[in-house]
Amino acid sequence: MSAGVTFEELFDPTFLNALSRWNLHARRVAGGGRHGQRLSKDLGAGIEFNDHRPYSPGDDLRAIDWNLYRRLGKVFVRLFEEEQDLPLYLAPDVSASLFLSQGGPPAIIAALRSTLAFATVGLNHHDSAGLFTVSDQLEVIFKPRAGQAQIMTFARHLARVAEAGGRGQTRLAESLQRLALLNLRKGLLIVISDFFDPRGLDAVREALQAVRHRLVLVQLVRASDANPELQGDVRLTDCESGDVADLTLTPRVLERYKAAYSTFNDGLVEIARQRHARLLRIQVEVDLIDQLSRLFEHGGFRV
C-alpha cells in the first residue's frame, strides 16, 4: 500500500490561484434548495418573471398583478423564477489503487486536486458542495455546505484523506448504491475514479440507475493503463485485492490486454451516453491545471 501525500503536495498556491478563474454552467437546478445563482425549477422570489396564476389565499399580496386585475377584474399573482444553489456531490475514489505509483505520480493527487477544483468552482458561485469518499464503502465526509469559507475546510479534509493513504478496494458500485439511498437533494454527482471496480462496469452501470443526480464521470487515466511496459514471465499482484496472476507476457497477450482495456473504456463511454453524463478523462501524469483550464475556461464547464 502506498503512503499518502501531504497538504502541500496536493494544493500548492499556483493550483489554488488557478481555481478562482473557473466557472461551472449548470442547467436549471432542482428546487427546494437554498438561495443561489442557479435558476431553479421553483417559482418564487426571484427577479425573472415567469407566469401568472389565480390568487389563492395565503399568497403574498405583493405578488398580485394589479394591472391585470384592472383590465380583467380577476386577481392573479405574478410568478417569478427562483434562483437556488446547485448541490455538488463530490465522490473521489480513495482506494489503494489510486495511491499506487508505477513510475509516475500516484493517481490520488490528480483525484483530490480535481475534487477540490470542482468544489472550489461550486463554492465560489454560491453553490454547496459535499464530500463522499469511495473505497470499500461510501464514506460521508460532510454533506453539502455553501460559502467560500468552506473551500479550505474542503482542502483540509481532502488532505486528511490523502495523508491517511489508500484504503481498501474500489467498490464503486456498492458505494453508488449507498449514495442513492441517502435521499439527497438532486444535484450534480461528480465521481472521480479509475473505475476499476473488481465487479466490472456492468455493476457500476446497474448502480448508477438508482442515482437521481446529474452525473459527471471523471476517469483518471495512467499511461501504463493503456501501454503496460511489462514483458516476460511476471507475477502480477492486484494492489487492492491481493489477487495474484502468473503470466507469460507475449506480444499476443499484450495485444489482448490492450483490447480488454479498450473495451473497458468503450463501456465507460456507453454508460456516460446512457446517463447523459459528462465523461472527463484526466491524465494523471499531465499537469492538472492545464487539463482543467481547457475544461472550465472558454464559457465554463456545462452540465
Binding site: 489503487s97 499506487l100 508505477q102 493517481a107 479509475d194 476499476f196 473488481p198 466490472g200 495512467r222 493503463d225 503496460p228 511489462l230 516476460g232 514471465d233 511476471v234 507475477r235 502480477l236 499482484t237 492486484d238 494492489c239 487492492e240 485485492s241 489477487d243 496472476a245 502468473d246 503470466l247 507469460t248 507475449t250 499476443r252 497477450v253 499484450l254 489482448r256 490486454y257 483490447a259 480488454a260 482495456y261 473497458f264
Partner: peptide, 25 residues
C-alpha cells in the same frame, strides 16, 4: 518459471488477456 513480481492497480484486464495464454507452470 521464476516470475517477476509486479504490483499493478488492477488485474482485471490481465485476467482477460491470460485466458488464452496462461503462464507456464
Amino acid at each position: 518459471v521464476r516470475h517477476r513480481p509486479v504490483t499493478v492497480v488492477t488485474t482485471l484486464f490481465w485476467r482477460v488477456a491470460a485466458e488464452e495464454a496462461p503462464a507456464r507452470t
